[in-house]
Amino acid sequence: MSVFIATSRRRLVTNVLIKSLLLAGVIAALLPLVLVIGYVFAKGLPAFSADFFLTDPTGAFFGDQGGIRSAIIGTFAIVGLASLIAIPTGIALAVYLNEIGKKSKLASGIRYGVDILTGVPSIVFGLFIYSVLVIGDFMTGFAAWKGSLALALLMLPVVIRAGEVSLAMVPTTLREAALALGAPRWRVILFVVLPSAVSGLVTGSLLAIARTAGETAPLLFTVLGAQALTMSFVEPMNSLPLQIFNDIRQPNPDLVTRAWGAALTLILLILVTTLIARFAARRNRI
C-alpha cells in the first residue's frame, strides 16, 4: 500500500471543475473584444475608400453623403489641443507632488482631488464646461477649444498619476548625487529627474490620449459637431466620435456604414496609440 494517502476524488474533481470555470471567465471576458473588433473590421472595411478619407460629410440624407475627412482632422485637432493643455500641466503637477509638495497639505489635497477627478463620469466634465463656457455668464457658444478643455480635464488625472508613478521610480540616490554636486533643485528636476522618467511620462501621456480620443459625451455639449472642415478652434468642429454618434441615429444604411467606417478608423487610431504606449512602457522595464 502506498504511503501517500490519495487525494479524494471529490477534491480533484472540484479542482478541475473550478479551474475550468475560471478559464471560461477568461474566454467570456475576451469574447466581446473579438466580437466587437471583428464586427467593426467586417463592417467598417467596406466603407474605406479614397473618397471616404478625403471628403467631408455633406449632411445630405440621400445622394452624396461624403466621407469623414473633417471628422478625422477634427479629432486630431481637438485631442491635440487637449494634450497640449493637459500633458505639460499634468507633468508639472506630478513634479510638484513628487519633488516639491511631497507630503504637504496642498499636495495631499491635490492627490485627493485627482482621485475624485478620476472617478468623475466624462459626461459631467462636459456639463461643467457647458455650464461655464457654453451657456455661462461671461461666455456663450459652442467651440472646439471648449471641447479640448473638457477632454483636458479628463486627461489631467491620468497624466498626473502616471507622472507621479514614473517620477517616484527615479532612484533617490540619483537626485542626491546631483544635489551633492551643488546643482540647484530646478536643474536636478529638469536635467536629471525628468529625463530618467521620460519613458514613463510618454506612456502615461499616450494612454491619456488613447483614453480620451474616443470620448463622445464631453464633446456633445461643448464642440457640438459640424459637417465642413474647419481649422478654427472658436467654432463648432467635427470629430470621429460625434460623427459616429450622429450617423448611428440615422435610419439610413449608408450613413450607418459610414459610422462603421469611422468606428474602424477611430479604433485603429486608439489601438495604435495604446500599443505604442505599452511598448514604450515595456522597453522601460529593465
Partner: peptide, 18 residues
C-alpha cells in the same frame, strides 16, 4: 519508504500531505 514521490502515479498534493 521505498516509494518514489516523483513516481508517475503519485499526486504532489498527497506527497505534501505526508
Amino acid at each position: 519508504n521505498e516509494e518514489n514521490i516523483y513516481g508517475a502515479d503519485v499526486d504532489p498534493v498527497s506527497v505534501r500531505r505526508t
